[in-house]
Design a protein around this nucleic acid. Structure first.
Lengths: 337, 337
DNA sequence: CTGAAAGCGCTTACAG
DNA sequence: CTGAAAGCGCTTACAG
């Protein structure tokens, strides 16, 4: 508790020689035509002199809002989270909103047991990331926007959506590999029941099917290095193995690198490897990883903008943020057989 | 805005047939000796029936608190941030507190331009991570706890602290390398003016100085792969190069790997490499990285516990959380000359 | 153009 | 043991 209590609108009123309501009107920007410009000026200067900041609790109580938004993410430890939060918080702050975070796997335990029970109860809206639409049921009645939860713009989508263009990104990877001469593609797929991974799988399957002589094999794994290494090994040790491994995630690609090395295969001379997301890891690997950059911070920012629009009574259109193919050293023409 | 307005304590009072003040007393846990047990029971059951949740805005206004804590971190995108936030938020929620986040490099721009200007103004306390004590000046008057900002327990430290035992961690690394037979050690140091890196450098210097025949060389770099690769290259191409590279950070170690490979040196046969932190990257690298695990989530949790104690009028003792040496495949005996 | 007043939902002396 | 009342700092009709 600060030693000196903060000035209130009453203090400003006294300083400016007007009533408290006038101060509220002026500082709330609702004075034009109701307060003389001269009075408005003197109120503003008094507020500045005193360093006045409105008390949010009082404002919230009066208005019945909290100016707080809940961001729900699958996990706080994935590198994906930081940028999404950053983007969302930046846009929120610009409108005087705060952002609190919750992870959704904990939800099964119910609100009482949830580590975020407290802020949960005083929220104006929800930004739910990488979450099945159905899981939003618990919050029916609270304005929500879904991020990375596709399919964007699906008819009858219950809430506005912002998604990555993962299908296009995957098609770019396929086209890049095809141009290098690859025909036998192995998909090291994330065994995670999220829209984004289904979309990636479908896009890749479609692209390879459209490739003359294209052959797709697939092995699924959890999103961790050890599991990915196992899945990649299965692909690479099958008869007639793929010449390129398309991985659903940069971390999975790291596992693919390990599988290749353990089999005595060089990346990219013996086998090409691609990732997805472009996190820090992508350039820490050797060779650096060809991958698709997903604008995570932009996802948070656009999602928050959509939620604020929704709170404002508007209906934001579904939005798709394109990924960008980043070609680095992990892809090369296949070794001639 | 939900269609049906939430029940208030007045509704509970009506349902239970008592006054609103009695409801407040009972639900606030201040009833013993003032309200009969039977009445308390009926209030509680009425509250449950109605699904009553106290309005935090009203509570905050009345009490003059916000039940919100600000967590300041250097950057949101480092893998360090997620776990710290998680730990802090978990403990905070248990006490009905929320956590908002801010990055401190932005502070130079001043509160008005800060992306977190809004929550900034209504905060009960501050958790400042990896920040020079002096930089806290702006918040003088607000209760604060410093994380990873050492030196812990320094006489006259202005605020309670929670730190990692980085010096001990670094000594463990030195002892591990010494036991393997290394004498010529290269320090790939983070050129970042934070306490933790000064402590690491000092501890390593001391340990090598205490080693018969020990020789320490050093090269500084930014915490990114390319810069680290350059610094490691300088060390490895010097006359009489080190047989082990001690890196201030796992990401720097990734750069050291690249430097070694570019010079045709194998890790760990030709050169041993160690990291610090044990982030996801450590096991994604090939070979997996010997490093010191820092309990980041615990740092957030203990820091929040200390801040809550401070808010409660107690003076938490300085706390040091030990790191743990994790030996993996990147260290081995030096090649005999 | 300006001010007095009500009321948001709580907590906490105070009176019975 | 219980209740009526004040008041936290705002916003917004309402009256002049």
């Amino acid at each position: 508790m600060p030693a000196i209590s903060r000035p209130t609108s009453k203090d400003v009123a006294q300083e400016a020689g007007v009533s408290q309501s006038t101060v509220s009107l002026v500082l709330g920007g609702k004075w034009s035509g109701r307060v003389s410009p001269a009075t408005a000026r003197s109120v503003r200067s008094a507020a500045e002199r005193l360093g006045y900041r409105p008390n949010q609790a009082a404002r919230n109580l009066r208005l019945g809002t909290t100016r707080t938004v809940l961001l729900m993410v699958p996990t706080l430890t994935a590198p994906f989270f930081g940028p999404v939060y950053t983007g969302a918080a930046r846009v929120a702050a610009r409108h005087g909103f705060g952002v609190v975070v919750s992870t959704w796997p904990d939800d099964a335990a119910g609100p009482a047991d949830s580590p975020f029970a407290a802020p949960d109860e005083a929220i104006d809206g929800i930004l739910a990331s990488s979450m099945a639409v159905e899981a939003l049921g618990r919050f029916r009645g609270t304005p929500a926007v879904m991020l990375d939860s596709g399919p964007a713009g699906r008819p009858g989508a219950p809430v506005p959506t912002v998604d990555f263009g993962v299908a296009d990104g995957m098609r770019e990877i396929a086209a890049h590999l095809a141009a290098l001469g690859h025909r036998r593609i192995g998909h090291v797929a994330a065994a995670v029941d999220q829209w984004t991974f289904h979309a990636r799988a479908d896009a890749l399957a479609g692209a390879v099917a459209g490739l003359p002589g294209g052959v797709l094999t697939r092995s699924a794994c959890a999103i961790d290095v050890a599991s990915a290494k196992g899945a990649a090994t299965r692909l690479l040790t099958a008869p007639d193995p793929p010449t390129a491994l398309v991985c659903d995630d940069d971390l999975i690609a790291a596992g693919a690198y390990k599988a290749a090395r353990a089999l005595g295969l060089d990346v990219p001379t013996d086998v090409s490897v691609t990732g997805f997301d472009d996190v820090l890891l992508a350039t820490a690997l050797e060779p650096e990883l060809t991958t698709v950059r997903l604008p995570a911070e932009e996802l948070g920012a656009q999602g928050m903008a959509a939620l604020l629009a929704l709170l404002d009574g508007r209906a934001p259109a579904p939005l798709v943020l394109p990924g960008e193919l980043v070609v680095r050293g992990s892809t090369a023409p296949p070794r001639p057989r």
